[in-house]
Simulated assay, not measured.
Amino acid sequence: MNHIYKHRPQFNSVKLFNEWIILFIITVVLFLASCTAKPDQMAAAAPPPVLPVTTVSTGEQETFVDYPAAIQGTTDVEIRPQISGTIDRILVNEGQLVSKGQLLLQISELPFKAQLNNAKAALQAAQSAVLNAQLEVDKLTPLVQSKVVSDFQLKTAKTTYQIALANVEQAKANVNSAQINLGYTQIKAPSSGYIGRLPKKQGSLVSPSDPEALTQLSDVNQVYAYFSLAETDFINFNAKYEGNSVADRIKHLPAVSLVLADQSVYPVKGKIDMINGQFDKTTGSITLRAVFANSKGLLRSGNTGKIRLGLSHDNTMLIPQSATVEMQDKIFVFAVGKDNKVNKVAIAIDGKSGTNYLIKDGLKSGDQIVLSGLDKLQDGQLIQPDKKGEKIAQLISKN
């Protein structure tokens, strides 16, 4: 009995320990179950995100393509001397607007006046020689008829007379040449325009063989903007506008804009008036020319800019670039289904218009797409569409 009594407390403590172990395990299991249940309950309780949505529709859209352009005046010429001489006077300033025929520079006239006087004197001498030759012919003619002198003398006199006439014509030509050279001492503007730099100064010796011109004159009342199209662009250009010939097609071309170096748009529209007859073999491009009115003189020869061509697209869709995501060289949008779940859809781009994409394939009229918040979306996620996106899309498309 004593033996049994001594071991009874040990039996109770083991049983109690086992019960505590079982209770601990149950507590841990319940705790873990509650922890795993909370996120599911929170996820079920969280509402779907509210995102702006717009409906895609087809219509006529216009895109713009910019091409680098070089600007020149309609008259852009170098002013060079036609004779050698010393500049006597400079009658204009650099950058001055001059009129056609206005005197620009005066070369010293003295040596050319002397040449003209010599030529006139030689002409008078030649004319006197004609008179003498004519007198000789008149004197010998009746003597030959009377057979007083031989016919040979009369023929010689007539030949001398013809030579004297030729000398008169040569003397007249020398007078004209001297008069022309004297006129070249006055260098006049061949057209209206702006004067460039004047590197030569009063007293400088000038010559037609000088490597540097006296100045440059640019008529910029109208300016030409030259730009080039690559072969593929030119093929698309021809296919876009109707016409049976180049001249006929030019008539149907829309007005073009000129984007200046500061990215501002020149306020006057231009017109394409020339397409080159052949491609440049070295660049594989063809040159076109647009003409712009420039009555205020805002443009000068040598300016640069960009010609902006507008291309119209019928039955096309326009969406903001901000409503797209790019992954692995592909562009996607999130289309909204009838159950308000989004699907990632790949689209094909036909071009750009400002900050918008023209859609070639992947969407159809009536489809709804998400405008923003794309970085947090997943394929198949449920959203709550916000129709305010329609107004947002309209504002973006206008910009």
Rank of each mutant, 00 (worst) to 15 (best):
S245L: 12
V246W: 06
A247W: 14
A247P: 10
A247C: 13
I250Q: 00
I250L: 05
I250Y: 04
K251R: 11
K251Y: 09
H252D: 10
L253A: 06
L253H: 04
P254Q: 03
A255K: 13
A255F: 11
V256H: 05
L258P: 03
V259C: 15
L260K: 15
L260F: 12
D262Q: 13
D262N: 14
Q263C: 14
Q263W: 13
S264V: 14
S264L: 12
Y266W: 08
Y266A: 02
Y266D: 01
P267M: 03
K269N: 12
K269Y: 10
G270C: 04
G270Q: 01
K271Y: 03
I272R: 01
I272H: 03
M274L: 12
N276K: 13
G277Q: 07
G277W: 03
G277C: 08
Q278A: 12
D280T: 11
D280A: 10
D280P: 04
G284W: 09
G284Q: 07
S285V: 09
S285L: 10
S285I: 12
I286H: 01
T287G: 09
L288S: 01
R289C: 00
R289I: 03
R289Y: 00
A290T: 05
F292Y: 07
F292S: 00
A293L: 11
N294M: 06
K296V: 10
K296Q: 13
G297S: 06
L299H: 00
R300H: 10
S301C: 06
S301G: 03
G302Q: 05
T304V: 14
T304M: 14
G305T: 01
G305Y: 00
K306N: 12
I307H: 02
I307D: 00
I307A: 02
R308W: 06
R308N: 04
L309Q: 01
L309M: 04
L311I: 15
S312P: 14
H313S: 10
N315L: 04
N315P: 02
N315Y: 12
T316R: 15
T316P: 15
M317K: 05
M317E: 04
L318S: 09
I319H: 02
I319L: 02
P320H: 02
A323D: 00
A323V: 08
T324C: 07
T324Y: 03
V325W: 01
V325E: 00
E326N: 06
E326M: 02
E326C: 04
E326W: 01
M327A: 11
D329W: 09
K330I: 09
I331H: 03
F332I: 05
F332C: 08
F332Y: 11
F334P: 04
F334I: 08
F334Q: 08
A335I: 06
A335N: 14
A335Y: 11
V336R: 04
V336C: 09
V336Q: 06
V336G: 02
D339Y: 06
D339K: 07
N340D: 07
V342D: 04
N343S: 15
N343H: 15
V345I: 14
V345D: 09
I347K: 01
I349Q: 04
I349M: 06
D350T: 07
D350C: 10
G351N: 06
K352T: 11
K352E: 11
K352P: 05
S353G: 15
G354K: 13
G354I: 14
T355H: 12
N356W: 06
N356E: 07
N356A: 11
